[in-house]
Amino acid sequence: MSTGSGTKRHIFITGGASGIGRAVAIYFAARGWFITVTDVNATGLEETLALIEGDAKHSHQLDVRDRDAWDVALNSANHAAGGRIDVMFNNAGIGTGGAIAQLEKAEIDACLDINLRGVLYGAQAVYPYLQKTAPSSALVNTASAAGITGGSGMSVYSATKFAVRGIAESLDAEWAPDGIKVSSICPSFIETPLLDGTGHRGENEQIRNRVLEAGLEITPVEEVAKTVWDAVHGDDVHYLVGKTAKRINFAKRWMPGRVRKQQRDASSLLGGN
């Protein structure tokens, strides 16, 4: 669905049906941008569009695992926005948790395909569009604090998020001659519906309860949206979101042995694998 076109700067958002993607869409729209939101959830996309005032908005149902679908979605968005895409927010992702020995193949494949393959496909597909709007264009990828340090039961998810940070660093160098900015954002625990899930297979307790019991911060989703804005207009490669992510990054850099011990102790308390 599209409801307008023009010469406004244009951000293409994956995972835009809820959570971080929706918050970023609202944030950029409020600052005069044309918004394209994509997701596999068509109902959620319509709900996101309804929250954005005006007609400078467009939605397209997209499964980021489908490389050919990327070309269709980007072409549609480019046309709707008057022939330009200035920013890609590669945000679509899923969580998966549990002991590696207990994860099913389908769970591993889905996490790798959406969180990693989807990011690579998106970067590859959007490159010619960002070339045209450079040097003010940007690719922003959603990583995670789980991409700074791994923890028990997080091997697959952490692998994808470490990879997303590596992709940002590689493309920052590769696309520098084109004038395209590339970065990753690393949120910790963000106030989104994902906190209402369990995170780990075989567990019934919500992530939200475990985070609060541990005394950790839950960051408002609007802070992530502001960080994406800062990434588009700044010059860093990695952006940390929330106090927890910043503490983890500091500890991993300066006290790696302590972080390792904490992760092992936490695993023991949870019963290990």
Rank of each mutant, 00 (worst) to 15 (best):
G4A: 12
S5V: 03
G16F: 01
I20D: 02
I20L: 15
I20C: 02
R22D: 04
A23V: 05
Y27K: 09
Y27D: 15
A29E: 06
R31I: 04
F34D: 02
T38F: 00
D39G: 01
D39M: 03
G44M: 04
E46K: 14
L49T: 01
L49N: 00
E53P: 00
H60Q: 12
Q61D: 02
A69G: 15
W70I: 00
V72R: 14
L74S: 07
L74R: 06
S76T: 15
H79Q: 15
R84A: 12
I85V: 14
V87E: 06
N90E: 05
G95L: 13
E107A: 14
I108N: 06
I114E: 01
G118N: 06
V119N: 01
V126M: 06
Q131F: 03
T133N: 05
S144P: 07
A146H: 09
G153L: 11
G153M: 11
K161V: 10
V164E: 08
S170V: 14
L171I: 11
A176M: 13
F189P: 02
F189V: 07
G199Y: 03
R208L: 09
R210P: 04
A225H: 00
K226N: 02
T227A: 10
G242I: 08
R247D: 14
R247I: 11
I248Q: 10
Q263I: 12
D265P: 02
D265E: 15
L269E: 15
